[in-house]
Each structure stands twice: as structure tokens, then as C-alpha cells.
Design a binder for these strands. Sequence first.
DNA 1: AGTGTATATGTAGGCTGTCTACATGTAGGC
DNA 2: GCCTACATGTAGACAGCCTACATATACACT
Lengths: 107, 107
Amino acid sequence: MNADALRGHMDALLLSVLEREPLHGYAIIEALRERSGGALDVPTGTVYPALRRLERAGLLAGEWAADGGRRRRTYRLTDAGRKALAGERSAWRSFTTAIGSVLDPLR
Amino acid sequence: MNADALRGHMDALLLSVLEREPLHGYAIIEALRERSGGALDVPTGTVYPALRRLERAGLLAGEWAADGGRRRRTYRLTDAGRKALAGERSAWRSFTTAIGSVLDPLR
DNA sequence: AGTGTATATGTAGGCTGTCTACATGTAGGC
DNA sequence: GCCTACATGTAGACAGCCTACATATACACT
């Protein structure tokens, strides 16, 4: 998976994976890998800054938790995040339609 | 159309639009707009440098032509460009499948 | 003659998000 | 003691798309 291709779609991925249940960063990475059948293997250096960015933007809310001695920051969607996810889904459909219309034009 | 979303897909778009016939930059921009129903309106500051990059990479071959007093640089796909286009199409399918599997998981 | 729009190409510099590489620490199996 | 998995995070590099600007021809309209 080319890195540049992910550009601008990371937010949608993160919001989507948090739609059903709150997860912490490491679990998010695993969820992306599993849901995509291994195609998406996003490095920590991408995910953690992105989560903070989305939290700053008010789309996620993060909370520290402890599992034994391990610290985890669990993120959940805010209402704004849920709205943003709907927008991202819509944008994704427009995007694939637009690119698809060029790559596979009707013959 | 979010600018970042295009990242890493521009090459595929340019190669694809040149698949059937050679075109010059301005015509390529129009072709992208028409084929996508107006969704893709790529600025010249994106297209011209990208065309030169693809030419340097050996995927396109450019040639100057004159239409009256107007100069045009017409690009055509090279053999390597045709192979690259096939790769880009394949990558596009993988990409949409991967992102789609996260955004619209089977329920 | 002047104005405006379409056609046509190109560069400089900025922006931003993803990546690589590194740093830190806990938990548990062998 | 060592290794792997779990868990979070930062610094800096890199690449490519964008805005804004510069240049020039062709043609319609006033």
C-alpha cells in the first residue's frame, strides 16, 4: 500500500473504526489490519499523531486508562466526530466515483 | 474534492486520460473535468509539474507542436507508461477494497 | 484601441500529513 | 536474562499538491 495514497483518508479510517466502540491506539492499528485483511498496516508514527489531531479538532475524546501497569489512551467518537464520519463516507463515495470514472470510463 | 485525497492518484489519472490518445496539458485538464462530471478540476500548478515528472520517469513522451502561434506540448504514453497504468489500475482496486472494507464493513 | 475571456504553459514557495527511526516502559513466556 | 508482544510517543525527512503569479496568443465585443 503506497503511503501517499492514504493521504486525506486516514481520518475516515480512524473515525470509522471507532464508530462501534472506543479503542486505544494500538487496538486501532490492529483493527485496521484485521478489517482490511492485512492490506492496511499503519505505523504508530502515523496513528498517534493523527489521533491527537482529531482530538484537538473535537472529533474524538481521549481518556487515560490503566490495564495493570499499562497505560492506554482510549478514544471515543464525539457527536461532532459522528457527523464528520458521515461526511467522510460521503466524500469517499464522491472520490471513488470521480477517480473511477477516469480510470474505468464507460465504454 | 479535498486536495489531499488526490495524493498518490494523480499519476493514475494522467496516464489513464492519455491511454486512448495523446493530449496536451490544457486538454488533459479539460478531459479530467469532463470525464468526472466536473468533480475533478485540477489546477495547472499540479498538472504541468506532474507531466514533467512522469516524462522524466519515462512513462510519458512529450513533443512540442504549434497550433497557429500557440505552443503546445503533447504527451503520449510510452510502453513503460502503459505498463505503469496497468499497475496503477490494480493498485486502485486494492486501495478501494482496503479502505472500503473499513468504511463499509460487512455486517 | 481597449477590454475581457478562453487557450496554453510554466515556476516559486508553502503547506501538511505520512513515514522512518528512535525512545521509553510494562507484561509474560521460556 | 532474553525475547516478544503490548503500548505510547516524538523529531525530522520527504513528497506532492496547492496558491499565486508570470507570460503569451487568439478572438469577440465595444
